[in-house]
Design a protein around this nucleic acid. Sequence first.
DNA 1: TCAATCCGTATC
DNA 2: ATACGGATTGAC
Length: 701
Amino acid sequence: MDVPLPHLDRAFDYLVPAELAGTALPGTRVRVRFAGQLVDGWLLERVAESTHEGKLGFLDKLVSPERVLSDEVSQLVKAVADRYAGSLADVLRLAVPARHARVEQNPGTPPTVRADSATAEAEHPASAPVEPVPAVGEPAVARPVPGGPPDAAPAASGSAAAEPAADERAIPGPAAETLSAAGRAAQDGWSPYPHGPGFLQALGEGRAPRAVWSAIPGEDWPRRIAEAAAVTVAAGRGVVAVVPDARDLDRLDAALTGTLGPGRHATLAASLGPAKRYRAFLSGLRGHVPVVIGTRAAAFAPVHHLGLVVIWDDGDDSHAEPRAPYPHAREVLLTRAQLTGAAVLAGGFTRTAEAQQLVETGWAHELTGSRDAIRARAPHVAPIGDDPQLARDPAAATARLPSLAWQAAREALRAGAPVLVQVPRRGYLPSVACGTCREPARCAHCQGPLELRSSQGVPGCRWCGRVAAGWTCPECGGHRLRASIVGARRTAEELGRAFPGVPVRTSGRDEVLLRVPAEPAVVVCTPGAEPVADGGYGAVLLLDTWALLTRADLRAAEEALRRWLTAAALARPQRAGGRVVVVADGGIPAVQALLRWDPAWYAARELAERRELGFPPASRMASLTGQPDAVADLLDTARLPDDAELLGPVPADDDQERMLVRVRRGAAGALAKALHEAAGVRSARKAPHPVRIQIDPHDLF
DNA sequence: TCAATCCGTATC
DNA sequence: ATACGGATTGAC
């Protein structure tokens, strides 16, 4: 039922009029009279008997006979709602795009059933036998899958990585020679990864390998994904692949056209507009294409015989849905793989702590390049300087460029290659670091990040609100704190002056370049907007790293490394003169990981640290935001798991405050359930102020 | 004794 | 939300 009230988040039974008996099938959109008014609803299940004691109403109208909610996606939506303490209706809104009647009528395929075939039965609707239908039935119990859902994965031993049995729905692949041709080309592309060919082989045999893939430098990742997709398709199964943004989508789109040929995949992104979006959705739903690619909402896209889910660069913020209940595309896809027994390919140049957790629990295997392959493809990476003054002051940094960065750029330009300069965007939150060793300052009680409260000079914790008086740095024992505020962004013009006679191009929010030719040019970009250079960049300069590293964010260092690796991956190999200069202290772990091109090492370190500090993904957190009394009321109402730990409150925007609830991962389901139920109780008694519930919020500061 | 109003509760 | 029922109140 498409009503926003948490306490109405359940199924209601309706009678199906005889004339709709053949068309009002599970997964269709319906309209029903509910509490006196007509509301939109989803027909979840048809049953012979209702358990409802009162009298049932009839479906008012079948909006469309299109069964937009498949059984598989229906289960997924339910699982995602449960995981994120959200309502089914909220998740359905994310999962199923708005209907577009014209597209539905005219997708280019003739309708198989004529609408007038029901006339014979429509003569006596009132006396016709009717069937009770739970229009929003209790969702079917999820099919149990060995190993439990990803949430439960930590308990699993190494053997839990055993692949789920091949899905019996898999249809046989086409002619063997087609398969082996696709397979052979793909095997070549994946050969730098010792387990790559094996992974593809498993896909080709319809099995469900699960891999965390660390792409080697310079990797043509859209092509690798397209190859994995092609092998899966050749084995008769479908693929869903999610990338962060439109630019990556274009690249994957092109690669898929190359490997699969035209018309074998659909592209699903909200930015395409309602008609195209619904058309892409329908072509997956109707089985016209075996592959659907898109941005985060495509994680829910229907395809027939799902065999593989792919996510690229799962650390990118764009994968986090900003609308309730704020699901993350990675979690949606992993849940989906768990429910269906599909294979998983979670790739990126970097590796998130969440992906590392999948590896360490044995839920997924690593797919990393051999050291030889990495050595052969990696650029030479050098750190420069550890003076934060240098990195923060554009003028000083420019002045110091010649020492190493400027020299590397000069040589690259002279060799006829473009140079990439990555500069962070301005506007990060000011945070607090140790004045002596510059380690980000954390709360002694809960390990939350400290902030400087503008009025008093005393820093406080962003999580638990405690004042950090008499703070001592655990690293160096220092007592002084300093604000690390990002300096002015270096402009392209400033860089242009440093390289007279060389064209300077910019790529950023307003205008993103896709490619640059193999000619001398300085390309200034913000992270995420790096153009691909034909033949690779001769040099990549990573500037203002201090700003990235000291951001007041749990993921600051991980995010810095992600951005650096993504940019550095576009450089030429060292043997072709490719160089990367990172203006940062080589002793910083994230910098170390870049120098050694070892994202797995960094992710393991990061995860260990999160475990120690009790941060996600090692634990589960919920954030509750709202008016202070509303938040308190919700917590009062909620029957939280016994070991739930409360942190806060801390002030949030407009008179609101935020509380954090932390539990061990084993209690994650209970926490979500308790919070969702409490929200239901509150809305039932018309509690005046809502509380926003976010599970593992992306912005843990 | 009846109607107007308030509050609490269910919404198939 | 909003529609309904049962209780409550006020006026005849």
